[in-house]
Structures are given as structure tokens and as C-alpha cells.
């Protein structure tokens, strides 16, 4: 009897969250894929064929026969989409690199700070992460505007005499991504650096390594797991970023997240935006799998 209860309980523990994720995460993707093979119509829902689950097997076969790859052919032939994908990856790549340049020294400084202030510094890095993403992006509009605070400051300091045009350019998008995703990169690097045994560096210096060399030969290689995890955490969501290019970018900014949103809300072309999503996902599958691998490895080593 007790055994029976235990097995029922363990089944519930697994199946409840499992089913939830199946219904609300996996099945929706299948639906997205299905709709990407449909045609746009002026109806509700605005695509055809629709699978009517009540139409039975024959209905299912009928709608399958109407599926077409037209949307994908269109995506491949229209340079706008190809460019948007490429430019998303490039912008995400550059901004990941910039985030690493800004974030690594912060993580390093935190990990080497006196133990008493370390937890306070950690809280200070996490705090902006808890405040709204939208607010943080919004804050930059006031700073980067032609008549904004940055230009006012630079003119006052006599660095420039005509305002720089930063808002609504790719530069603004890069600044926005670096700023918004900085904590995602700092935290994993900090946690690997903080766990690192500092006597390793001392041993290297004792064996004749100057501090800079000791950093590149000891500290940096040991912090790589954190660097890799952090870079994935910035790169993957940045490729599909929508809010930042929408608010900070301009007409020159081509990013696939924004394109998807426009197709979906302005053009109401659901099948095409589904196809855009499927291709974006296909693009991200490799980094996502790599990210999961590195997370699983990190967990194994913790045990």
C-alpha cells in the first residue's frame, strides 16, 4: 500500500510539470510549424487551412494536402529576410563581445573584492536585473536623443559642437543590448571566479609568472565555463531581441525579432511570421543545445 502511494506520488511529481511543458511549450511549436505551411487569408484566424480537430482523420488528410512550402521559398528569395537574419546574428555577436569586454572586469573586480563587500556588490549587479527590462531600455532614449543628456554633456564639455545622432542607429541598439544583458554575463563569470582557488595564481607567480601572464594562463582559462555560459545567455536572446531594436534602433536596423513582430501585428501575416519563427529557431538550435550541454556539465561537476 505504502509502495503504491510512493509510486503514485513520484509519477505525479514527474508528470504534472511534464504535461504542462508539453502542452504549453512543445505543442505550440508544432502548431507554429504547421501554420508556417499555411496560406494567409482575410479571416479569423487569418490563415488557411485550419485543422479542425472535430473533422476527424479525413479532415486532417485534407488539410495536410493543402500545406505548402511557399512561405519558406518566399523567405529565401526576399533579400529583406535574409539580411535581417544575418544582421541579427552580427548585431548579437558584436554586442556579446562588447558585453564580455565590459562585464569581465566587473566580475573580476567583484570576485577579488574583500569578502565583506562581495555580497553587497553581488546584490548591486542583480538589482537592475530585477527592474523592468522595458524601463532600462526606455532610460536610454532620454540619454541618446539628439537633444538628450549625453549630447548636452558632450557639448558642455566642448568635445563636440553639433549633437551626435546616436538614437535610432545600430550603435544605440548595441548600447541597449550591452546594458540590458550585462548582469547575465557578469553573474556566471563571477561565480566561477569566486569559486576559483586563488592560491593557484599565487603558485603561478611563485613559479615565476608575472601577474598579467598568470591571469591569461591561469585565471582566464579557469573562468572559461562561466564566460561560455554568460556569452550564450547574452547571444541567444539577443538574436531574437525585439524591444531594443524597436525602441532604440532606426530604419536601418534590421533585426529578425522586429521583422517577425511587424509581419504578425502590422501585416497580420501569421503563416509568414510562423515561418520566420521556425527559421529563427532553427538558427538558434545549435547554440541552445551547446548551452544546455555546458549547463549539464556544470551541474555534474557540482555533484
Amino acid at each position: 500500500m505504502q509502495k503504491l502511494i510512493a509510486s503514485v506520488v513520484s509519477r505525479l511529481v514527474i508528470s504534472v510539470p511534464y504535461l504542462w511543458m508539453l502542452i504549453f511549450f512543445l505543442i505550440p511549436f508544432i502548431i507554429v510549424f504547421k501554420i508556417s505551411l499555411s496560406q494567409v487569408t482575410m479571416a479569423i484566424p487569418p490563415y488557411t487551412p485550419t485543422i479542425d480537430i472535430w473533422a476527424g482523420w479525413q479532415g486532417f488528410i485534407n488539410s495536410i494536402s493543402q500545406f505548402s512550402w511557399d512561405n519558406y521559398v518566399f523567405l529565401g528569395s526576399d533579400p529583406l529576410y535574409v539580411k535581417a537574419y544575418i544582421s541579427s546574428v552580427i548585431i548579437a555577436g558584436i554586442s556579446t563581445f562588447l558585453t564580455l569586454l565590459v562585464g569581465y572586469p566587473i566580475a573580476y573586480g567583484m570576485a577579488r573584492a574583500p569578502a565583506t563587500v562581495r555580497s553587497t556588490l553581488l546584490m548591486l549587479v542583480i538589482l537592475p536585473f530585477w527592474t523592468s527590462f522595458l524601463i532600462r531600455v526606455y532610460a536610454w532614449i532620454g540619454i541618446l536623443k539628439p537633444e538628450g543628456l549625453l549630447n548636452q554633456f558632450l557639448i558642455w564639455a566642448n568635445v563636440i559642437d553639433t549633437p551626435l545622432n546616436i538614437l535610432n542607429t545600430n550603435t544605440a541598439v548595441l548600447i541597449g543590448i550591452v546594458y540590458s544583458y550585462l548582469p547575465f554575463l557578469v553573474l556566471p563569470i563571477y561565480s566561477t571566479l569566486e569559486k576559483m582557488d586563488y592560491s593557484l595564481v599565487e603558485a603561478a607567480e611563485d613559479l615565476g609568472c608575472p601577474p598579467i601572464t598568470a591571469f591569461w594562463k591561469i585565471t582566464f582559462p579557469l573562468s572559461l565555463p562561466g564566460v561560455v555560459a554568460g556569452c550564450f545567455l547574452v547571444f541567444i536572446p539577443a538574436v531574437g531581441e525585439f524591444v531594443i531594436p524597436d525602441l532604440l534602433g532606426g530604419s536601418e536596423t534590421l533585426m529578425i525579432g522586429k521583422t517577425l513582430w511587424n509581419e504578425f501585428s502590422a501585416n497580420r501575416d501569421w503563416p509568414l511570421s510562423s515561418a520566420v519563427a521556425v527559421v529563427l529557431l532553427a538558427l538558434l538550435v545549435v547554440p541552445i543545445v551547446l548551452f544546455q550541454r555546458s549547463e549539464a556539465k556544470a551541474q555534474e561537476s557540482e555533484k
Binding site: F25, V32, P237, F242, F264, L280
Partner: peptide
């Protein structure tokens, strides 16, 4: 996956569901 999944994809797929 949802930790890094671009929100536009998660949002769109849930809407279509």
C-alpha cells in the same frame, strides 16, 4: 530552453496555441 528562447518565439507559439 525557455531560459534563452527569444520571447517573440515563445509569445507567438503560445498565441497560436
Amino acid at each position: 530552453a525557455p531560459l534563452v528562447m527569444p520571447e517573440v518565439i515563445t509569445g507567438l507559439s503560445l498565441l497560436l496555441l
